[in-house]
Design a protein around this nucleic acid. Sequence first.
DNA 1: CGAGCGCTTGATTGAGTTCAAAAATCGTGG
DNA 2: CCACGATTTTTGAACTCAATCAAGCGCTCG
Lengths: 201, 201
Amino acid sequence: MIDFTQYFKGHSLAESSELNELLSQVKLVNVKRGEVLQHRGDDAKHAYFVRSGLLRSFSVDEKGKEHVFMFAPEGWIISDIQSTAMQSPAVLSIDALEDTEVEVIRADIFEELVNKHMGSHPDFAGLELNRLLRRIAVLQKRVLLLLSASATERYQEFITTYPNLQQRVSQRLIASYLGITPEALSRIRVELIKSERSASI
Amino acid sequence: MIDFTQYFKGHSLAESSELNELLSQVKLVNVKRGEVLQHRGDDAKHAYFVRSGLLRSFSVDEKGKEHVFMFAPEGWIISDIQSTAMQSPAVLSIDALEDTEVEVIRADIFEELVNKHMGSHPDFAGLELNRLLRRIAVLQKRVLLLLSASATERYQEFITTYPNLQQRVSQRLIASYLGITPEALSRIRVELIKSERSASI
DNA sequence: CGAGCGCTTGATTGAGTTCAAAAATCGTGG
DNA sequence: CCACGATTTTTGAACTCAATCAAGCGCTCG
């Protein structure tokens, strides 16, 4: 079982009263598949730490179409970092793709902790820095893929990067993550299976 | 004239010996339009602070095609954050689109400074955190645009977000940034000018 | 001044979308 | 546990946006 406490383990903050104060703000919530945790337009943004289950964030465009921004399985933190940083209403909605046990906390808690407790617990900043750097790495990779790779290549990249997710998420949602229609993904898969067959003969 | 020193102004580190140590590592370099500052595959990554001129970072795909990842005009810092964070060879190349005066420093200096001097100069972490959050914000926006918007919409978004760049960068490069061909952008512009005309009559 | 680069325009092709409908799967209540 | 309705996936056909290929024009800078 992974949780915020464990996330902070190994850092000086882990044993401090500040951490206890922080953890006392954490609410443990059970959400059912399909429930929406955060709506686009919400002013109060939250960060969600997934203990078990699966969340996703997504945007809705003018034509009403959903676009999956990210998936968050066990151990992941999901939030609308952009809207939190810009102190603007949420542009992303967040909902549950499976029954999920999730720890909820104010999304700006990380920044606040860094700013407030840097002096006494400086390595907390390093932890947060690391989280953001990893986020940037996956976003950079995703942008470059969207710029340069065909739908087929993006799908192959997806299944090698997230083999476990591929089992748990419907094709409809994978297609949305890849920026294509479900029909296109269906056709891509039959082509891939065909070529697998001929390659293994 | 903007530089690293100014970037650090207003933070406690600004007056410290650590900053002087840092600034002594900064090399001021003049690069000519077309010069490549960093090649894909380089092990030593650098961060570039643009004092004047214009840099860009880009990737090259298997077919040899270039894809513009970002532009960096005066006052911007450009680097391959992903490769620096992952301690892997650079995936992005960086070159000059105009004659550029640039301050060069090891790309991992920010992380190192945060880790080393956090105790004595904690607010430096806040500065760096802010830089990363802004980066994430633009990347999130770009991913969502690539997922949901047509080439025309992405172009319109580009010119409203970066009106100054539009003047300085060739259409060829803007097209690359948008993920389309120069021919497609040329046609899009014709259509937009047409519809502007009919709208203003 | 000429070679090359950038932009445009045209014709053709192709990857992916849209619309429609059937087949398969899932989930829920009885 | 089964059955029914709803959702997802597949398949087909027509269409669209953007890519590709090709040619011509206008600059500039060497």
